[in-house]
Amino acid sequence: MLLDRWLGAGAGATDDAPGAADSAAKSRTDQRIPAIEAIREEHRAIAAILSALSRILDGIEAGRLQPDVRLLAGMVEYIAEMPDKLHHPKEDRIFSLLRSKTSDLDGHLDVLEAQHHDSVPATSHLDRALVSYIQGGAEAFAGFRDAARAYIADEWVHLNTEEEHILPAAQRLFSAQEWQDINADFARNGDPWSGEGNRYADLFKRIAHQAPAPIGVGDGASG
């Protein structure tokens, strides 16, 4: 699987991601819950893109890489569309049911739901920063770099909060029938992170092969 290959190549294995890409293994139990597996698979895909973007920013800043506009635009498109259109609706259902089970997680859920609500403005800001960079050239890099790094930092916290607090609680508190209903609903979406018409899987594949080695899995050079 391309996601496993890319993560194995290092896109999801940097210090920037304190567990989002691999925390599924840490908290997995003997019980298989397809809905949780789907959410974690999507987390891994998002983590791979975020980690690769972080490394590309470092490479551009250090002069090791020339900016690849198509690659950067693809990455911003992915993190702007896939989470909001495919991933967050799944999690929102988990959040809603979890609130009916316990109030212990209300603080986490308040923050996570607000971030879901604000995801479009957040990624729109990142997209505008990229456009400014493309139009302004090297002098405008700092603005895009800072916007991207702020977004990435917030997203790591978001993903890890879900992995460390929300999913384990849901797995512990939801009944077998509730999971059966959720699993059936999620299954209607098809593959967990591919999207309608394989849109996001194809975009992920294109990004992976555009990203220069050792960040991506392709042989193409950035430029």
Results as ranks from 00 to 15, higher is better:
residue 2 L to Q: 14
residue 3 L to P: 04
residue 14 T to Y: 07
residue 21 A to K: 13
residue 21 A to W: 00
residue 23 S to A: 14
residue 28 R to M: 10
residue 29 T to G: 07
residue 31 Q to G: 00
residue 37 E to R: 12
residue 40 R to E: 15
residue 41 E to A: 12
residue 44 R to F: 00
residue 45 A to C: 05
residue 47 A to Q: 06
residue 48 A to F: 03
residue 52 A to E: 09
residue 54 S to P: 01
residue 57 L to E: 08
residue 57 L to S: 04
residue 61 E to S: 07
residue 62 A to S: 12
residue 67 P to L: 05
residue 69 V to I: 15
residue 70 R to E: 04
residue 72 L to P: 01
residue 72 L to K: 06
residue 82 M to F: 15
residue 82 M to C: 11
residue 84 D to I: 07
residue 86 L to P: 09
residue 87 H to D: 06
residue 88 H to D: 05
residue 91 E to G: 02
residue 92 D to M: 07
residue 93 R to F: 03
residue 98 L to N: 03
residue 99 R to P: 00
residue 100 S to I: 10
residue 104 D to I: 10
residue 105 L to V: 03
residue 107 G to V: 05
residue 111 V to E: 14
residue 115 Q to V: 06
residue 120 V to M: 06
residue 120 V to S: 03
residue 122 A to F: 07
residue 124 S to H: 13
residue 125 H to C: 07
residue 127 D to P: 01
residue 128 R to Y: 11
residue 136 G to A: 03
residue 138 A to F: 03
residue 140 A to F: 12
residue 143 G to C: 01
residue 150 A to H: 09
residue 153 A to N: 07
residue 153 A to M: 11
residue 155 E to Y: 06
residue 161 T to H: 07
residue 165 H to N: 13
residue 171 Q to H: 02
residue 173 L to T: 12
residue 175 S to P: 00
residue 176 A to D: 11
residue 179 W to M: 10
residue 181 D to N: 14
residue 184 A to D: 11
residue 186 F to K: 10
residue 187 A to Y: 08
residue 188 R to Y: 04
residue 195 G to H: 01
residue 203 L to K: 00
residue 206 R to V: 04
residue 211 A to H: 00
residue 212 P to V: 00
residue 213 A to H: 15
residue 217 V to Y: 07
residue 221 A to H: 04
